[in-house]
Design a protein around this nucleic acid. Structure first.
Lengths: 185, 185
DNA sequence: TTGATACATATCTATTTGATATATATACTA
DNA sequence: TAGTATATATATCAAATAGATATGTATCAA
């Protein structure tokens, strides 16, 4: 059983959310979805093409004065059904996060403790940045009066990012102590 | 700047930890490293070959009676230096976990609340399984008297898995409530 | 007028994923 | 005893993804 192609569902979903060009989708994902998804142009444009071929989307060419021409994509009823059908499927497997900090820690016996602690410090500060970014986006969405139907769901995914990031930061602090105790022994 | 090739460092690290064949490495990663790393044979064998070409590893062919021949790989001093050098490099960027549950939640406006809650329940039970698996491995490592120098570092990475998994479970519970409240409004 | 940025599409290489092919030997099981 | 599953072990392939870059127009500022 080949794994499902999530890319097409991400694109179909974005089509329902007011993003109609490949460029706009890329911007959206990099800006507001990057806490749990990423995508490249090399996936977006071929997928849009395929969605049209499959009848899940339609394309309109529009030439704008002052800007390059663009292809605007719109989801079809069949596309909407495909999206809804995917939403109903239960999640098959938990994602595995490939984490190169943990990979380094796993082999850190070969390294000085203070160096390992540096790694943890850097990691912690990056987590902190991430936390603030998520908190900022949440603020922005909440203060934005034009609440669409999507808003509560977007908040939920941000909360996931906030709470797991916080847990990771706590772990950094604890781990630093553990390493220092280990050193003293 | 091309992204670093982490695969080779994972392999180099495993060579220092008593895993000397591609098969053994795959077993190890699937069993004990899968909370933050995964790898396929399609990465392992070509990488081993390349490590030998670069002088980071040496290979010995050994024919065992009863079992297929195997190629045993050993890290060289140059390989060890390469590994240590990588360990010292600070982490460049936080990993982005691609999470298809969150992708579905993000678009769940198109779906019945109870269906969304089903998704969350399934996810929670999988997280719980994962938590128990990690706790089990931790127990096993701690109770194993032959403590190597690696042990404390392995525990640390497991703790990361335990605490972020717990945070995600808490989020599931909170989110369920949020969705039900939303429904009642 | 040079450079930076925004808009917009397209493509390319390298890596990763996930599956499968190919062997041999052991252990169990009907 | 024949068949089946499992463990050991290496290798390869197609498809998906990542990451970078090419191409072009227009705007704005230094």
């Amino acid at each position: 059983m080949a794994k499902e192609n999530y890319t097409q569902y991400a694109i179909l979903g974005l089509l329902t959310t007011g993003y109609h060009t490949g460029y706009a989708m890329k911007q959206m994902i990099d800006g507001s979805l990057n806490h749990f998804w990423k995508i490249s142009y090399g996936q977006i444009y071929p997928t849009l093409k395929r969605l049209v071929e499959q009848g899940f989307a339609e394309v309109k060419l529009s030439s704008q004065e002052g800007k390059p021409d663009k292809k605007e994509y719109f989801i079809t009823p069949t596309g909407e059904e495909t999206l809804r059908n995917w939403l109903q499927q239960p999640i098959q497997e938990l994602p595995i996060e490939k984490n190169d900090l943990l990979l380094k820690l796993f082999f850190s016996r070969h390294q000085d403790t203070y160096n390992t602690i540096d790694l943890l410090d850097t990691y912690h500060s990056k987590l902190s940045e991430r936390y603030n970014t998520y908190a900022g986006i949440k603020e922005m969405i909440l203060s934005d009066l034009c609440d669409q139907g999507d808003t509560p769901f977007w908040i939920i995914t941000l909360d996931y990012g906030l709470c797991t990031t916080e847990a990771a930061m706590d772990w950094c602090v604890k781990t630093k102590e553990t390493l220092l105790n280990l050193k003293e022994e």
